[in-house]
Design a protein around this nucleic acid. Structure first.
Lengths: 208, 208
DNA sequence: CCTACCGATCGGTAGG
DNA sequence: CCTACCGATCGGTAGG
């Protein structure tokens, strides 16, 4: 009844639904998650879900959109925060890694969406992410002419490959970190470290 | 009735089931694929599936195993075929890329299994793939001491990251190739080319 | 490999 | 946001 802290944090039922749906869709997949399971996690009845989101498909779209919104707010901040020019790319990528590691489910959902609905996901990325990758692409091309980046780097392909590595490493981290060190999961330190090294070593021109 | 070419190609019902199940599990996911859909694709009735594979879960395990078996036959061949020492790693990776691109569903299934069943997938990889990654790791360490590979490469992490890139690029190729060039899919030429470049540039030591 | 069939669960509606 | 309910489909069994 209280409307004082209505839009404050993750308090509203709608926000709690989105949160639990993101988690379950990421962990078990869209088809592997029932509306009943989401309702149970939130602590309401199934038809109450349908009151907030008219269908399961509509709920999925809203979950994806909530991620996109987060992205569109964070990415500009990542790109501008980094002060010095030479390290801007690496620090942006580090922010990207942190964004996904903050909640591994974000990376998993992105990977799932790409595989489950390639065409739709392409449209979404093309609309909301491509502007930024194009910007970084221009920045890369400038650096190439200035001689600080390798000349044989394919800017567009490079950016996409970095994204594949970041999102792939975080999404599959639980599995693959066990293959590099003993710990079966969490933080995957050596993996992220090597990821950053590969991204840098394949970009910066050799010192002459 | 004819038993002449019984074990020849993809002729037996069991093999046809495995083939269609791999395709559907890869495209729609395990939970998104019904036994009815598989039966329809094969052209038999649902209970006939259960005759060959006692449960859906059992069928999934057999699909995964069929991939593993393929792997265990191909990987040694990849590693030995490459003649000259210096390019062995790159040619092995190229074979790996070809293996997954031959049938994109292989890469998609691997990614799905990693996200859907992290612990189980780790066990499978640890048993059947780790021996080979360890071998390549030793080879990398030797090359490092010989000075042909960068000293700051983390061999184990590097190998895993290369696998993430390969499998990720192929699995998500349909989506991401559209972001680098106009073509919405197929062959993803520039992506694979950049992938190979990154793998090489981040490995080989700078010429002094 | 098929027909016939089962209990359980699915997404979603009616109506309040 | 709830109770009551629906047709369709799920994985799987019985029995041949």
């Amino acid at each position: 009844m209280k409307e004082i802290d209505q839009g404050a944090e993750h308090n509203t039922v709608k926000e709690r639904i989105l949160k639990e749906a993101l988690r379950l869709f990421s962990e078990k997949g869209f088809e592997g998650t029932s509306l009943q399971a989401i309702a149970d996690a939130v602590g309401i009845q199934k038809p109450s879900l349908i009151y907030h989101f008219p269908s399961k498909e509509n709920l999925r779209q809203n979950v994806v959109e909530s991620l996109i919104v987060y992205w569109k707010n964070e990415l500009p901040r990542m790109l501008t925060t980094s002060q010095d020019d030479s390290n801007r790319l690496v620090s942006t990528m580090t922010s990207l890694v942190n964004f996904f590691m903050e909640d591994v489910n974000r990376a998993r959902l992105v990977v799932r969406e790409m595989i489950d609905r390639p065409e739709e996901t392409f449209s979404v990325l093309n609309e909301h992410v491509s502007p930024w990758t194009r910007l970084i692409g221009d920045y890369l091309r400038m650096g190439q002419q200035g001689g600080i980046y390798k000349k044989d780097v394919d800017p567009n392909a490079y950016i996409v490959q970095v994204m594949v590595m970041v999102v792939g490493t975080v999404a599959m981290g639980t599995v693959i970190s066990g293959m590099v060190s003993a710990s079966t999961d969490i933080s995957h330190g050596p993996l992220i470290k090597e990821l950053v090294r590969i991204v840098q070593a394949s970009l910066y021109a050799d010192k002459k």
